[in-house]
Design a protein around this nucleic acid. Sequence first.
DNA 1: GAGTACGTTTAGTAATTACTAAACGTAATA
DNA 2: TATTACGTTTAGTAATTACTAAACGTACTC
Lengths: 174, 174
Amino acid sequence: MSQSLAKIKKDFTQGISQISRFWGFPKGMGAIFAVLYISPTALSLDEIVTETGLTKGAVSTEIRTLARMGLVHRSTKLGDRKDYYTAETDFYAAIRSILQERQNSEFDRAVRSVRDTLTAMEDNWVENEEWNFVYARVQALQEFFDAIDSLSKAVIKLESLGLSNVTKILGVLK
Amino acid sequence: MSQSLAKIKKDFTQGISQISRFWGFPKGMGAIFAVLYISPTALSLDEIVTETGLTKGAVSTEIRTLARMGLVHRSTKLGDRKDYYTAETDFYAAIRSILQERQNSEFDRAVRSVRDTLTAMEDNWVENEEWNFVYARVQALQEFFDAIDSLSKAVIKLESLGLSNVTKILGVLK
DNA sequence: GAGTACGTTTAGTAATTACTAAACGTAATA
DNA sequence: TATTACGTTTAGTAATTACTAAACGTACTC
């Protein structure tokens, strides 16, 4: 009944693709991860191509971002010039890796622009009601971003704590 | 120097738009929120239109999703048939609201599909190595999703705890 | 050093998403 | 009942993003 295993794999892959899209990633990326995740062996780029139905080019570029996120790992076999890929199975590690990735890049730049707004106002201060109001609001927002920032840094630092433990702890706080 | 306040508002709005896009929301949505956030008074739909440069239609639809997320609030004035909008300033409340929103919808459906994969395998069991392997992997993924689920439920339950406190607590765990 | 087996880049296309313009519905006002 | 002042819906367009097909580069093999 290997036929129905094929169907199960296909359904699973579709499900992960949906989840991928939900989180704002291309669905092809989800498909690639899914295929690797349920494969007992490391797969070559061409094997991924046939499993997902995407082209080499697409797999090549998307798998690079998956690797950068720490969701897949590239390896090689001696005397074989193909690259082989496996899925990361420690999702907690993957989350940390993604957070680290986001630490730099776009988001940081955008957050910095809020801080810039604040210093621009300070450097150019006008004492009136609206000015004060806007300043206070922007400042509150910046504090919120700072909190997010330290939260994600804290999560990054947690080496071995499983997500379920974090859940329990938050549960106790209620 | 009200002219430079206008510039500051514009820069701030642009920054928030970027952040909005980063999180996978339309940048117009970010602009609408930003304009409301730094406005001392509640704004009507048409005022938002002139401030953001979007059309009525766009503001109408996007503000509805902002309201559903709890990021803005709609209000009315007696003897005035306009709707007025204000920004939510308690971001922690907004986060809870967004999590609650996501609890239903797409993501849940996708996660359910993983669970379906598991039961499909159980109902149709074949005893061989690959089958066992795939089952174990899918099961691990499902446990991860369950953990995420209880984490978000736990966060939703925390009524009054500020985000910065959560940060501190996670810091201690290290 | 010609042929082959790869991964990558690029230029173009398909699909999706964000938005506009304008018609529409509704309720208050005259 | 006609007019006005609103918010919503809809049908189409612009912009963005995901992807394909094919050329390309590189390095290994004979």
